[in-house]
Every structure is written in structure tokens, then in C-alpha cells.
């Protein structure tokens, strides 16, 4: 067979083989493994370009806001001063309440407080146009960030780290359709798994008998995954009943609006359960579980 004919058939068969191979995979994003590391290296190479753009555009934006666009700043200043006075007075109350809370916690024997180390990072970029919702932040493995670590903001949970470069990390937002997080309803402690649904909302499927209301707040359960317990996630905005009469679909709006995230806090805590599994099954436990023949080959060797 001459070379041109061979190339023709290789291309034709490739057109049909490529989708079959792709659709037979797990549909997970690039994260770990040697090929992933090579792929992430490309991002490490392109990071300086992104960093220069981010710094120069935010620098220009800041200069505009600080030195030129000053109309309305005086009015804003007055409002802020008034707000500051209010906050100062409420701070006095807050200090008192904090002391009282700590005293009550120690009386009740509660010891769980958030003592994790944290890393604050700035959002470099985020694709809002694509349905795959991740954001890139300015801290990576050099700051101790690892895959699976939770990311939060002042208002609540944001998502989980799925990819780490040397100077950047990618965070999969709660609204991404690949995201799943264990949560409970704060009011009555009903548990469920919250999954990403659309660009602005998440979804939770519960039994129809579970009593939930619109406006209920969901928080992380802390039982599965690396999130600590009690971090607010979102509020219930819609409840619809499935036709099977068994389950109800609950739409949840995250407390942190994905398109407004500018800074994130990454909690430097790894998933304790995954740590235990890796300890027992070895570092490549996940690959082994997906490919049992690999495990057999190693045993026979």
C-alpha cells in the first residue's frame, strides 16, 4: 500500500476512533498523572503572559479608579464614615458575644474550630463563557496548595482545587457540572450531595419526605471531602417534585456569586479520608481501582 493511501485510511479511521476513545473515558478534567503534569507544564510556561496581562490591566484599572474617576467618591466617603461608626458600636457587642460564645462552647465540650492554615490568592482569570466553570488563582504548589483542597470566600464555599501548577491553581467552582459536595440543611440537618448544575446554580436531590423550605441555608457537612463542617454553601431558591413521587429536586443559589469572586482563601487541608486510602492502597490506588489488570500484573511480578 503506498504511503498516501495509508495516510488516507489512517485519517479516516482516526475520525471514527477518536470519539469512541473519548466517550469511553471517565470525562474527568486534567489533574494528576504524568501526562497531566506535562499538560500543566504548558500552563506554567504561559503563566507569565497571563500574569503580565493581569497585572497591567488591574494596574490601569486601579490608576483610573484612584486618580481619575473620582466623581462620587466624596459621597461614598460620607456613607462609609457613617457605616464605620455603626460598625464600631456593633464591634463592642460582638466582642462581648464572642467571649460568651467561647465560654459556652467550652462548657458544652465543643472543640471544633477552624484552625487550618490558609493561603489567600487573587483570581487571575475565569472562563464564564464556557460551561466548564473553573477559575485560576495566583497561588500554586510553591505556596503549599494541593489538589482537593477547599476554596472559600468570606460569604461561603467556592469550590475545590482540581489542578495545581507551580505558581497557579485551578479551582472547580461549585456550579461546575462535575462538582459534588456533601452538604446539610442548616435548619434540620438533612444531608445530601450537592452537584453543579448551571452557570449560576447547583442542584440537590432529596427524598420527597425530606422537609425543606425555600430560603433554607445549606452548609458543608464535613463528613466527606476536605471541606470543614459548617461552611455556608448556598440557599434554596426552588423546589420541584419529580414525577416518580419519590424524590424532589432542589435548586440552590451559591452564597458566593461565581462571577463576583476576586479573592479566594484556600484552606491547606487535605481530604483525610483520601489520605487514609492512599496510606493503605499506595499512592496509585486510584489508577489501580480503575484498572484492575494493572493490579494483577504487579502482583504476578
Amino acid at each position: 500500500m503506498d504511503l498516501n493511501r495509508l495516510r488516507f485510511w489512517v485519517l479516516i479511521s482516526g475520525i471514527f476512533a477518536a470519539p469512541l476513545l473519548f466517550f469511553s473515558t471517565q470525562f474527568s478534567p486534567w489533574s494528576e498523572g504524568p501526562v497531566s503534569r506535562a499538560a500543566i507544564l504548558i500552563q506554567d510556561i504561559s503563566y507569565p503572559f497571563a500574569w503580565v496581562w493581569h497585572e497591567s490591566s488591574t494596574g490601569l484599572d486601579n490608576a483610573w479608579e484612584r486618580y481619575i474617576n473620582l466623581s462620587g467618591k466624596s459621597h461614598e466617603n460620607t456613607l462609609l464614615q457613617a457605616e464605620n461608626l455603626k460598625l464600631k458600636s456593633s464591634q463592642l457587642n460582638y466582642d462581648e458575644l464572642l467571649i460568651e460564645l467561647n465560654r459556652l462552647r467550652s462548657l458544652a465540650g465543643f472543640t471544633q474550630v477552624m484552625t487550618d492554615k490558609i493561603v489567600a490568592a487573587e483570581v487571575i482569570t475565569g472562563q464564564k463563557a464556557l460551561p466548564f466553570r473553573t477559575i485560576r488563582v495566583s497561588k500554586g504548589s510553591d505556596a503549599g496548595v494541593k489538589i482537593g483542597m477547599p476554596a472559600i470566600a468570606s460569604a461561603g464555599a467556592i469550590g475545590r482545587v482540581i489542578r495545581v501548577g507551580v505558581y497557579f491553581s485551578d479551582i472547580q467552582l461549585l456550579v461546575d457540572f462535575d462538582s459534588n459536595i456533601d452538604v446539610f440543611v442548616q435548619r434540620n440537618r438533612i444531608r445530601g450531595v450537592l452537584g453543579g448544575y448551571s452557570n449560576e446554580s447547583c442542584r440537590l436531590k432529596l427524598q420527597r419526605s425530606s422537609e425543606v423550605r425555600i430560603g433554607d441555608t445549606l452548609a458543608t457537612s464535613g463528613i466527606v471531602g476536605s471541606f470543614p463542617k459548617g461552611i455556608p454553601v448556598g440557599k434554596i431558591v426552588r423546589i420541584s417534585f419529580e414525577s416518580d413521587d419519590v424524590s424532589q429536586l432542589i435548586t440552590v443559589a451559591p452564597w458566593v456569586e461565581p462571577h463576583l469572586i476576586e479573592e479566594v482563601i484556600i484552606l491547606l487541608r487535605e481530604d483525610p479520608e483520601l489520605g487514609r486510602i492512599a496510606e493503605a492502597g499506595g499512592a496509585d490506588w486510584f489508577d489501580k481501582s480503575l484498572n484492575p489488570t494493572l493490579n494483577e500484573k504487579r502482583t504476578t511480578k
Partner: peptide, 9 residues
């Protein structure tokens, strides 16, 4: 692919 959370491949 490494810029988004899309499935690899």
C-alpha cells in the same frame, strides 16, 4: 483543556 475544567480529550 488545561485552561478549563472540561473533560480531558
Amino acid at each position: 483543556e488545561t485552561n478549563a475544567g472540561c473533560p480531558r480529550g
